[in-house]
Design a protein around this nucleic acid. Structure first.
Lengths: 344, 344
DNA sequence: TTGATTTGCGCAATCGATTGCCAAATAAAA
DNA sequence: TTTTATTTGGCAATCGATTGCGCAAATCAA
């Protein structure tokens, strides 16, 4: 009675209507020259039989998948989930599918994700690289396999691809100048892993701000944090317990680091913002609600996502194979000044 | 010079080695009976030619894709991203791929996601339904297309599938009893959309706790919040400004709602926890760091994800087609008692 | 009425990998 | 030496949808 091990195919529909698969296919894709009457019958029958197109077959034949793959370090960081939401808002209209992967900041996992996406024949790979690793042949591979590559936020300069980035240097400079204006004199920098250029740029912005304002640069106030949060507490503690401690910290890696600073300061009985100013990075939703609320930098993740998707579709429209596009789009982040950096 | 419009296939490798595609395929899948020497040559040549398997073709032929599709309301809610992380930790080892989709709490989008996944021939769909909507034929469709369905957290009872849930009722009951023990007398309930059974269960737990402890139930203290946060503030304000206001609130929808309560209370000059106790739900990471920190309930998202994946693989091992598995696994959430519910 | 178009749909190849079955070649057993 | 196994690898069909080509009928133009 129930032999439905197999799914309904266009052949089944064709058989039921005494047509061929060609006609069914053409009817369903409502293009080509098919009699309107026939088309209606096919569509009705397809619905009746609960037909579902097999995208595997279709994509195999067409050589494209209407699918974009996204690789991010962590989907639960608000910046990345915002970017994804931004991309989605555009791709939804165009009926593109999204495959989301997370590398968990692991280079190995990142490579695995990228390879999977290549094998799946996605039309485009959107990636923000993990903090680990310095070999990027997997990215070159994407290009070699004629899959469009769009890097965002954490980009690898050497790889020639479309890039959508924040102007990290300028934002950082503004953040530090904000601290200076608030009256802080010894401003420390907690930097992110320096193999990523976003973190190098932020450091550069910090240095420029100090120099431009004739604030002396103190090497002992510049520390690199690694990409996971495990050692944050020690690092922060070592900074805040210096003989001559800083009176402000720019936690340029991210807000989680800034939060750590706040917690350690509380622990040590250091008053924020009176004795210590704090500025984080990325406007995580919790920054609004700590006590005191945290000054941070908003990266406009949603806008960035939209820009990424739009960039892809622009390219796709004029499928100008010849021109290798390596445009870089830069978005200016915005300083969100809150209580943690404003002395009363 | 550069004709590489096309990707390398097993046929290209076969040609280069004077073999057939069959042999190449078998070598690459290192099973079957192929001479070790031949296999090595094939693998070497494949690497040399930068060959990538076409999963579309492979999956089409095999009729399965080693892929699991996940549909959640929002990937950036910590509970859901934890579940995803949990699933990933298991599927990674097994070399399964994950396709993550978010419904944004929209029923329509959810249907679209599910259909896409069906068309992609994923082996399994893991879903937590959106708050909107009450028609679930799209879920029945999954089953009808012989794709394994696993519902979690927010499940639809009528749909016969595997289910992995939290014991919401018990956890809620414990939370409310905790509030009672802390000395709160008029405990309000801010419930989630009552078309979802998780929210009904939480309400049931609340009521049971009150009755078991002989605390009178006051209808004006029970309000339903909808799924997006937009109207939270008004709702909360209306609650806290009642002639006879509550002295505690169980924000059972989620921690964002609890946070809202905290903010409105601050605004109205109501002291937490002295004048008002608060308990949220889901242990968002910010709950630890508000002032005061928020009492909440941890749902063990990561464990839940692991359970989901394990459930799938167990089923997959004994591919017992005949038995329709409709087991429900229940996980007990844990009350995290923090400052917001403990009077000094 | 005849030739030229247009319309509607079928034929068959194709996308790339997998796999049941079969055929050599070689080894082992009789 | 013949028979039987075993190993290795080729042949060809298959998964389901798409599409260039072509043919026949219908429509139009002359």
């Amino acid at each position: 009675m129930d032999l439905k091990k197999k799914r309904v195919t266009i052949y089944d529909i064709a058989r039921a209507l005494n047509l061929t698969a060609s006609t069914v296919s053409r009817s369903l894709n409502n293009n080509s020259r098919i009699n309107e009457e026939t088309r209606k019958q096919v569509i009705a029958k397809a619905r009746e039989m609960n037909y579902r197109a097999n995208s595997l077959a279709s994509n195999l034949r067409k050589g494209k998948s209407q699918t974009i793959g996204i690789v991010v370090p962590r989907i639960n960081q608000s910046f990345f989930s915002n970017v994804i939401a931004g991309i989605e808002s555009i791709t939804n209209e165009k009926n593109y599918n999204l495959i989301i992967c997370q590398s968990n900041e692991s280079h190995e996992k990142e490579i695995k994700c990228v390879n999977t996406l290549i094998n799946q024949h996605v039309d485009c790979i959107v990636i923000s690289v993990s903090a680990e690793g310095d070999d990027y042949t997997h990215l070159q591979n994407v290009i070699d396999h004629h899959i469009r590559l769009i890097q965002f936020d954490r980009v690898v300069e050497e790889i020639e691809s479309l890039k959508v980035v924040n102007n990290n240097e300028q934002a950082s400079r503004e953040a530090v100048e904000h601290l200076i204006k608030a009256g802080y004199k010894r401003i420390a920098l907690l930097a992110g892993p320096q193999n990523l250029d976003i973190f190098r740029d932020r450091k550069a912005g910090y240095l420029k701000a100090l120099r431009a304002n004739k604030v002396p640069v103190a090497d002992e106030l510049i520390l690199d944090a690694d990409s996971n949060n495990e050692h944050d507490a020690e690092l922060i503690r070592s900074l805040l317990t210096l003989p001559n401690p800083p009176d402000a910290v720019f936690a340029s890696r991210d807000d989680f680091l800034a939060l750590g600073v706040l917690e350690v300061a509380n622990d040590l009985g250091i008053k924020v913002p009176e004795q210590l100013g704090i500025c984080g990075y990325s406007n995580e939703n919790f920054t609004r609600i700590t006590t005191p609320s945290l000054t941070t930098i908003d990266q406009y993740g949603v806008d960035m996502g939209k820009t990424i998707a739009q960039t892809y579709f622009e390219l796709d429209d004029k499928n100008d194979e010849t021109a290798i596009e390596i445009k870089t789009t830069s978005i200016k982040p915005k300083l969100i000044a809150r209580a943690s950096s404003q002395r009363k």
